[in-house]
Design a protein around this nucleic acid. Sequence first.
DNA 1: TCATAAAACCTTTTT
DNA 2: GGTTTTATGA
Length: 799
Amino acid sequence: MTFILDPAEPTESPLLAGLNPRQREAVEYRGQALLIVAGAGSGKTSVLTRRIASLIDSREAWPSQILAITFTNKAAAEMRERVEALLGQAAQGMWISTFHSACVRILRREAEHFGYGKNFTIYDSADSRALIKRIIKQLEADAFGFTVGQVAGKISKLKNELSDVESYARGANFNDPQERIFLDIFREYTRSLSSANAFDFDDLIGQTVYLFRAFPAVAALYQRRFRHILVDEYQDTNHAQYALIRELTRSPQTDLLEGATGFDGSVLKDPTRPLDPASLTVVGDSDQSIYAFRGADIRNIVEFERDYVGAKVVLLEQNYRSTQNILSAANAVIGNNFDRIDKKLFTTVGDGEKIIGFTGYSQHDEAQFIADEITELHQQGVEYRDIAVFYRTNAQTRALEEIFIRSALPYRVLGGTKFYERAEIKDAFGYLIAVANPDDPMALRRIMNVPKRGIGGVTEATLQNWADREGVTLREAMRHADEMGFGPKITAAVLGLVAVLDEVSLVADTAPVPEILIALLERTGFVEALRATGNPQDEARAENVEELVAQTREYRVRNPEGTLLEFLTETSLVAAADELDDSSGTVSLMTLHTAKGLEYEAVFLTGVEEGLLPHQMSASEPGGPAEERRLFYVGITRARRRLYLSLAMTRAQFGDVSVAMPSRYLQEIPPELIDWRQSPGMATSRGGTQPRALNARREGFTGVGSGYERSSAPGATALARAARAAQPKTEWTNKVTGTVRDNGDLTLVAGDRIRHVDFGDGKVTAVTGVGPKSIAEVQFESAGRKRLLVKLAPIEKLS
DNA sequence: TCATAAAACCTTTTT
DNA sequence: GGTTTTATGA
């Protein structure tokens, strides 16, 4: 065997500089299909951008022949910047976007092929739900136990599997009234969308696939254009997205392109030359698959080699992000998922700090710890923007925000209650949509009586009936309001509104967005009406609308040619992570789902409790607990140097307090990796000494889990209880995390004196609630008035 | 038709 | 705890 020493070749491309051998291979491999299995923090974004840059740099591809799919718009923008930085020039014509944005772009261009207008509206989840609600009411399906959430979930699921009304009907059992009615709802929903010239989120993907399958000539155009397709976060693609990629990577039927026009408008030359299918690169990590609830199918990545025969697989396991302690914890946790290919992340940067654990008495206590630690970190020189706080559910932000405000910490909540979800903003958008797409009745209904014009439900129903009878749109019916026997005031109101809309519609394709919005607001008196009420909340709403005007102005500056339609598209597809502003000096708060793909110097993973992480709802889902574990894994691996895991012993939900137990996942982390500032074990009962772990857990379950038991079939509760009892006790009696404080049957009445570990001595002023949920209000001598859960607070009664 | 009040429902996670 | 739906009367 000969060893050839390989000194760095002088001619080596700078695009490969600093890459390890695996990464280089992923950049340089050329072939039909490439799967990059990229563990967390293994530099996959770097690999992807360099791969794109190298394709362009070597003249193997024009920028316009590249289609790269990312998970968020922000990731797309970042990738574009990085590619352009590598190439040292703008790479015009690359499509780097999310699945949804790419599909909207294709659909706007091709919608007219199948009966849609290019000015179609995109219904977000709230719009879809509003429509489904209307249909359920109209068909009186609520009597059969149909809820909006169920129906919306089922329709979304079907669409993600590329089912439509017909294909569903084929497999439906018509003897089952439930199924017949669901089919009616589904059919009506589909009909409503198409007559409104609207797509819902799932349609954007599904209808694009349909378009490609039904119109091979259209498909061929895109198959020919995109020669290199790259998909990031492939483990979270659903069946529809998978099918879309399959369609795009088919060999174009070149005979269909004869005489077709290319994207630059020129007639394609030599359309009959056979073309290879586009090359496909996918990047993913099945350990980070966390969107099964949205139809993501892990098989897409697991079976990639079967789907694309001859595919090359490259594994990236070296981690460039985190310390070894953080990685060891992550490896230990994910190792408990058994149906996976074992892979171990490693690093060369050393162990780093220990993970810090903290157990609060309440969620506020937990939040206070986090706030204190952040203050401390900031004093040590960590920027606020390098710190993130993660949680499982959006509801958890409340306690965090309260404490952060009190501690004067600058923070920003990603996702959550979005600006665009505010009623007044949706109203303003209602006007814009009504102008852009006159066929959309949802937008019209939303604004019909905003501001108040005296057009109520009765008037609206009369208009709708007239429209249905005449077979015209609601908008057209409004133009004939004088033929329906309304009073003079209502007639004038309807005609006035529709006149404004019609007039502004004329310039919808050409006028700048801010001008359109301002024209609508002024002519309808929307903002004025808000200001006139004298209600401070309405004043705030008016300011929000003004803020929207400012945003349209910004959009105009960013995008001088941008049309109303493009503005509406952009705003309907913003993701939570898109709101991140890297230059802001604030701590970021977000859900674990939003955190995917991001990284921070210091990460606080909060609410690591049974019922929350894993979430209660996941227990009844197949694969639920494993997916929750991956979610935990994703959270851990976001941290570069500092990781904090925190939980609370009690958590308030729906206004009442319940006992929380440490998450099972905490016990999967080797104890020596965690430095517990206050462990669940340390907080154990001062009042009683009996082993409480099992008792406490059961109480925790019945307390937090009442929702689960209520929704189960009658037999299921007993079964679940038996299953719980059968679990080995040892799983729960871990020295570190297995017990909670328990004051046993301690009862307090007003007037009792108590001593609290943190707050000192105090006097009980009132007791509310019964049994394990009783809460004492205590006036402390120095710490003020507090509300404490009698059963769990670190208190003792003074006699 | 609309304002106020009582009541119900809620909470996984998201493009 | 907070939003949203429904009931009631003006």
